[in-house]
Design a protein around this nucleic acid. Structure first.
Length: 124
DNA sequence: ACGTTGACTCCTA
DNA sequence: CTAGGAGCCAACG
């Protein structure tokens, strides 16, 4: 009994924070990016921005679009993530994300959740 | 249980 | 632009 360590595909983690992070990341639509701090905030830990990065590093969940998570400054993750910045950039560009430079995303257009989304929700 | 770690963010120079 | 320091907090050994 108490075989709670069954890693038969799904990983039972005792970390609600991490699960919340993964859930938020999974909600990021294509062509959009989100910051670590924003995800931490949405996850319920507004100051745990660093832990979001940890969660990404430790994430083994396939299909999780964590390449859409970038720094608040619009710069991509360090080179050791994704194998290289170029790879992350390619993934984002493939989704329609505009870059101001090789390492800078146009956050004003692609940050999510976006304030312009509020306009869409308005019935006006 | 304590100390270290880190894909962060903010500030100063 | 780069470099350094401080604050922050959960997971991990």
């Amino acid at each position: 009994m108490t075989e709670n360590k069954s890693f038969d595909g799904l990983i039972e983690m005792d970390a609600p924070f991490y699960e919340s992070v993964y859930a938020q990341v999974a909600l990021i639509p294509m062509g959009r990016v989100c910051t670590y701090g924003k995800i931490a905030e949405l996850a319920g830990y507004p100051k745990a921005s660093r832990e979001v990065g940890l969660a990404m590093s430790r994430a083994d969940e396939p299909g999780l679009p964590y390449h859409r998570v970038v720094n608040k400054n619009g710069t991509l993750a360090p080179n050791h993530a994704f194998g290289s910045k170029a790879l992350q950039r390619g993934l984002l560009q493939g989704e329609g994300v505009a870059f101001l430079d090789d390492d800078h995303i146009d956050m004003e257009k692609h940050t999510w959740p976006d304030d312009s989304a509020v306009e869409q929700m308005s019935f006006m």
